[in-house]
Design a binder for these strands. Structure first.
Length: 582
RNA sequence: GGGCCGGUAGCUCAGUUAGGGAGAGCGUCCGGCUUUUAACCGGACGGUCGGGGGUUCGAAUCCCUCCCGGCCCGCCA
C-alpha cells in the first residue's frame, strides 16, 4: 500500500514475496513503486500461462536451480490414503512434467513422515487393496498398545508389510502407479537411520539459543529449557519430549521418557532415563520440514491450505536463520470436498484412488487435478458424469473441436500432461462414448448389444478398428459401476429371468400384439412407434403400457427408451418376454 | 478478534495475466425425430459476476469497505 506509513512496526521478517500463494494475486511487485531492490524478482516478462503448472515452473526456473530439480510432497501416515492425500503427489507431478518438457531433469520425491508417533487410533483404515475398513477388522488392541511409537515401529495392522508406515506408503505408491506418476518414495525414518539428518540435527542442537529464539516467535512452549529433539525411548519405544542434555561431540542426547499430551489424552512415558544418538530420534515438525528441504535439496513443494499460515512462514524463517538455506518455491492448494462435505475419514467421507478408477478413466482423474489448485472444488460422485463430460470437452478442445478460446488454450497446453504423454501426444482423438450413454449400455451385459446400439446412435465411427471399439466400450463398465454405486436413474438391469408380474387383460393383449410385431422383424424406431399404436389400439394408457414393458425387461417402473432398446436385443428373447413365456 | 484464501446462471465451472460483448456444459422448459418415457437434434428461459462505495468515457477484472465460507493464529503434524 502507501509508501510512508511504515511506523516502527517491528518485524517485517517475512516479506510479501514469501507468500506461498504464488498462483493468486500478483502479491509481489504489484505496486511498482518498491523500486530498486527487486531485480531478482519474478523475472518480469514472463508471458501469460493458460496452465498453472507453467506459472510454477517459471518461478522455479527463476531460481536457477541445480539439476536435477527436486519436487517434494509428503504426509504423515494416517489410517487411510485417500484422494486428498493424493494432492501431494499429483500437483507436484504436473510441475515435474512441465519442467521435464522444458528440458530439465527432475526428481519427484514423496516423504512418508513415518517417524512421527501414532498419536491416536484411526477410526478407519485402508487394506492393501485400498478398501476402507473399520478398526474392528484389525487388532485394535495391538494398535492401542503402540500409541506414541513411530509409525515405522508399529506392526502393519493387516500383517502384510513390515510396519504400519510401510503399509500406508505402499498404498500411496500403488495409487501413483495406477495413475502412471513416477515418484520416489522416501521414508523419513530411513533418512534419520541413514544419517542423512545428522548434519541438520547437529546444526539445531549446536545453537540451541538461536533456534529457541526463532521458534519462540511461533510457539509459546519454547523457553530457555526447550530442546527441539525427540528421542525414541530405548526402553518402551515411544517418542519422548524431555531432553536433559546434549553432547555434540558424541552426537547424543540424554532424555527422560515422560508423558506426552495428545489432545485430551495422555500417552504415558515409562520413566526411563537414557541416551540416544542423533539417529535415534527426530526433530519436531517445525524444524523437520525445512530440514527435509535441506537434506533433499527441495526446489518446489505443494502443500494444503492448512500449512499456508502456520508451518510455511515458520519454515521459511527456520530455513534461512537456522539452516542458512532458501526455502523451496511453495504452492498452496485448496482442499476439495467430497459430495459437498469435507473429507473426513472418521466420518467416512473419503474416497480412494482405486475406488474412483472403477468409475472413470485415469485421465479423467488426472484432469480433475489439472484444474486450478486455488479453486475450492467439489467432487460429486452422484454427478461424476459432469466431470467426465467436462473432460471429454477438454479433450475435444485439444483436438480443435470446441469453439472456446480459453478452454482451447488450456487444453492445448495441459492435455498432453493429463494423458501422460507430454513427449508423444496422441494425434487422433479417442472415441469416447458419452458417460451417461455408456451407463445406458451398461444395463445389458452383452458386448455385441453394446456395440450395435453405440453404432446405431452414431457414437462409433463406421471404420473404427476393433481396438478402437474395445477402448470406447471400456467406459461402459465404469459407467455401469457408477450407476450401481449411486443407484441413480441409470441403475437398471436387463432381467434374464421373467419378473413376477400380473397385467390386466388389455395390457396383456397389447403385449401379445407387440410381440407379434417384433416377431415380424422391425427395427427399434418402428418398435418404439408401434408401442404407441398398440397402446391406443387396446385403449391402454401409453404410460401404463410402457410401465408394463419396463416391468418385463427391467423389473422396474421406468427405464431407457424402450423401443430402440428392444430393437437391439435378440429377437426371440424379446418376443418370448413380451409373451411372458420366458 | 487478527491474518490468508475463496465467493460468476439451479448444478459443475471458464473468463480476472494486459479494464471495453457476461459465457460454456449440464439441468429445467418448449419444440423436433409419423411417438408424453431419461440416449439424438433445435430453441428458449435463466445471473444485482456476494453487497456497497470509489477510480475510469467504460469495472466480474483496479482501489476501499462490509457480508458469507474455509484455513491458520495453544499442542501436534
Amino acid at each position: 500500500m502507501s509508501a510512508d506509513d511504515d511506523a516502527p512496526d517491528a518485524e517485517a521478517d517475512s516479506t510479501p514475496a514469501d507468500s506461498p500463494h504464488i498462483l493468486s494475486e500478483q502479491a509481489r511487485g504489484a505496486d511498482g513503486e518498491v523500486g530498486a531492490g527487486d531485480e531478482t524478482g519474478d523475472g518480469g516478462g514472463k508471458g501469460f500461462h493458460a496452465f498453472w503448472a507453467d506459472v510454477v515452473a517459471d518461478e522455479i526456473e527463476a531460481r536457477d536451480p541445480d539439476e536435477p530439480i527436486v519436487i517434494k510432497g509428503g504426509v504423515s501416515p494416517s489410517g487411510v490414503a485417500h484422494l486428498g492425500n493424493f494432492n501431494e503427489i499429483i500437483r507436484g507431478y504436473f510441475v515435474a512434467a512441465v519442467l521435464r518438457e522444458r528440458g530439465h531433469e527432475v526428481r519427484q520425491v514423496f516423504t512418508s513422515d513415518d517417524k512421527d508417533p501414532l498419536r491416536k487410533l484411526p477410526r478407519k483404515l485402508a487394506n492393501a487393496d485400498g478398501e476402507i475398513v473399520g478398526l474392528g477388522e484389525v487388532d485394535a488392541g495391538a494398535l492401542g498398545r503402540n500409541l506414541g511409537k513411530p509409525y515405522t515401529a508399529i506392526p502393519d495392522p493387516f500383517g502384510e508389510r513390515e510396519s504400519y508406515a510401510a503399509h500406508f506408503a505402499a498404498l500411496l505408491k500403488a495409487d501413483a502407479d495406477r495413475l502412471s506418476i513416477p515418484v520416489e518414495m522416501v521414508s523419513n525414518t530411513e533418512l534419520y537411520a541413514d544419517g542423512a539428518f545428522d548434519e541438520v540435527t547437529r546444526t539445531v542442537l549446536a545453537d540451541l539459543d538461536g533456534v529457541r529464539e526463532v521458534l519462540s516467535e511461533y510457539q509459546d512452549k519454547v523457553d530457555g529449557e526447550y530442546v527441539p529433539f525427540n528421542p525414541v525411548c530405548s526402553e518402551c519405544g515411544k517418542i519422548t519430549e524431555t531432553v536433559t542434555s546434549v553432547d555434540l561431540d558424541a552426537e547424543t542426547v540424554e532424555y527422560v521418557c515422560t508423558d506426552m499430551d495428545v489432545g485430551d489424552n495422555t500417552i504415558e512415558g515409562c520413566g526411563h532415563e537414557g541416551t540416544a544418538t542423533f539417529r535415534e530420534g527426530k526433530l519436531p515438525w517445525r524444524l523437520e520440514w525445512p530440514g527435509q528441504w535441506d537434506v533433499l535439496g527441495v526446489d518446489f513443494e505443494p502443500f494444503g491450505k492448512d500449512h499456508a499460515e502456520g508451518s510455511w512462514p515458520s519454515g521459511v524463517d527456520v530455513a534461512r536463520r537456522v539452516f542458512g538455506t532458501e526455502p523451496p518455491v511453495p504452492m498452496v492448494y485448496e482442499w476439495f470436498t467430497l459430495n459437498g462435505e469435507p473429507l473426513s475419514s472418521s466420518a467416512g467421507n473419503i474416497v480412494t484412488v482405486p475406488e474412483l478408477l472403477e468409475l472413470l478413466e485415469p485421465a479423467v482423474l488426472r484432469y480433475f487435478f489439472a484444474l486450478h489448485p486455488k479453486k475450492a472444488r467439489d467432487l460429486d460422485i452422484e454427478r461424476l458424469d459432469q466431470l467426465v463430460d467436462r473432460f471429454d470437452r477438454f479433450e475435444r478442445a485439444y483436438f480443435g473441436e470446441v469453439d472456446d478460446e480459453d478452454l482451447t488454450a488450456f487444453a492445448e497446453r495441459a492435455y498432453p500432461f493429463v494423458v501422460g504423454r507430454a513427449d508423444d501426444p496422441p494425434e487422433e482423438k479417442p472415441v469416447r462414448l458419452p458417460y451417461t450413454f455408456a451407463a445406458v449400455l451398461g444395463m445389458v451385459d452383452d458386448p455385441d448389444f453394446r456395440e450395435r446400439l453405440a453404432r446405431d446412435e452414431g457414437h462409433i465411427p463406421e471404420d473404427a478398428s476393433d481396438e478402437v471399439v474395445e477402448a470406447a466400450l471400456a467406459r461402459v463398465e465404469k459407467a455401469r459401476s457408477w450407476a450401481e454405486r449411486t443407484g441413480n436413474e441409470y441403475d437398471y438391469r436387463l432381467q434374464t429371468e421373467l419378473p413376477d408380474a400380473d397385467f390386466d387383460d388389455d395390457i396383456a393383449a397389447a403385449l401379445d400384439d407387440l410381440a407379434d410385431f417384433v416377431a415380424a422383424g422391425h427395427d427399434g424406431d418402428a418398435i418404439q412407434s408401434e408401442m404407441y399404436e398398440t397402446a391406443r389400439a387396446h385403449d391402454v394408457e401409453v404410460s401404463d403400457f410402457f410401465a408394463a414393458g419396463y416391468r418385463l425387461f427391467f423389473d422396474d417402473t421406468q427405464g431407457p427408451r424402450l423401443g430402440e432398446f428392444l430393437g437391439e436385443l435378440e429377437r426371440d428373447y424379446v418376443v418370448a418376454r413380451l409373451r411372458r413365456e420366458a
